[in-house]
């Protein structure tokens, strides 16, 4: 994982999350062809960053670069973890979504993006690609006495702080008073909380003859897939909110006062989701027509739900697969090609 690559991924995130035209993290895969971010000019060329973010990009070139890579990895694992169902579902909507809709899906995207940034930076810290990390005193949590006296604080503190300053700056620059900014900030934080609240404590005993007379424990990040799953649950139970003023500060409160108020970890949204079934470019909805579906699934990726009752085509396609392969733990794969006929279902 080269540093260049990491940074690139971060940019991709940002690109993907914040650019007005492509607020979809799944875009990352398509955008991975962006060259390495090794020069400051690259920052300028990245569309979708606001001026403050461009400055941060220039100041933290190495962070940006390696971030990109890890971020992409995170998203890939989240995608498979959350289930392709969800990702495909929002894909139809978000591919061309505009900033306008403060929907449940947008809440999920913001949360997982901000979690992804925190995760990616933390991971890059432990690989030595970033200089500051847990020992950086400008970030909250850095130990004041230094590495030699008491070690450094957990890298996750740095990752979260970086995510806060980099991802949230976009909303804060608007004054953080609009409904949408409040919603985004909340969901960004919920994403980071999904990592922080699921940290695992691991311990090692190292006393005389391996006894637990001495024991050292540390916090380890959950696999990003787990973060994705947590956020998927929050997505399912997201709270619809509206703005309300308490004193002079604006806050988001549940629209239905019967519901108990949301916590820091919950996702919130303002607008209900549009109908994803039909092609509606005005709202950025591509429709599900022509999308591949799963005949046996009862979930959202199943043909019944996804095709919105319009039915589906079934085509028989011959695919060449690799079979009777010999694998090593990496790289070398010796296989024979096998031909197989598979059924592909697409929505009408």
């Amino acid at each position: 994982m080269s540093p260049e690559y990491f940074l690139r991924s971060l940019l991709l995130i940002i690109l993907a999350t914040f650019s007005a035209n492509a607020s979809n993290w799944l875009y990352l895969a398509k955008l991975s062809s962006v060259g390495s971010i090794s020069e400051e000019e690259t920052c300028e060329k990245l569309k979708g960053l606001i001026q403050r973010q461009v400055q941060m990009c220039k100041r933290n070139l190495e962070v940006m670069d390696s971030l990109c890579h890890y971020y992409k990895q995170c998203m890939v694992s989240a995608e498979s973890g959350v289930g392709l169902a969800l990702s495909k579902y929002i894909l139809g909507y978000l591919d061309h979504a505009r900033e306008g809709g403060g929907t449940r899906e947008a809440a999920f995207v913001y949360a997982i993006s901000s979690a992804g940034v925190a995760f990616a930076v933390t991971r890059a810290c432990s690989s030595g690609e970033l200089d500051k990390c847990g020992c950086d005193r400008t970030v909250q949590g850095g130990s004041p006495q230094g590495f030699q006296w008491s070690g450094c604080s957990d890298n996750i503190a740095y990752g979260v702080a970086f995510s806060q300053s980099f991802v949230d700056v976009r909303e804060r620059s608007k004054g953080a008073s609009s409904n949408r900014a409040l919603m985004n900030l909340h969901n960004n934080e919920a994403g980071r909380k999904a990592i922080l609240n699921n940290m695992r404590v691991e311990c090692k005993c190292h006393g005389v003859s391996g006894s637990c007379e001495f024991k050292t424990c540390w916090k380890a990040m959950p696999p990003f897939r787990k973060v994705g799953n947590v956020l998927k649950e929050k997505f399912d139970g997201a709270t619809e909110v509206e703005q309300s003023e308490i004193g002079s500060t604006k806050v988001l409160v549940p629209k239905n006062s019967q519901f108990k108020p949301h916590t820091d970890e919950d996702l919130v949204y303002l607008d209900s989701s549009p109908d994803f079934c039909d092609h509606d470019l005005k709202n950025g909805v591509l429709g599900t027509s022509g999308r591949q579906c799963n005949k046996t699934s009862k979930a959202i990726d199943g043909c019944e739900l996804m095709c919105c009752g319009r039915g589906f085509h079934t085509d028989e396609v011959e695919v060449v697969e690799r079979c009777s392969c010999k694998f090593h733990w990496c790289c070398s794969v010796k296989c024979k090609p096998c031909h197989r006929v598979v059924e592909i279902h697409t929505c009408r």
Binding site: S126, S127, G151, F214, A220
Partner: peptide, 14 residues
């Protein structure tokens, strides 16, 4: 005194 020991996570480079 600070805590007795510190654990530092490392990710290997390939």
């Amino acid at each position: 005194a600070p805590s007795p020991t510190t654990a530092v996570p490392y990710t290997s480079m390939k």
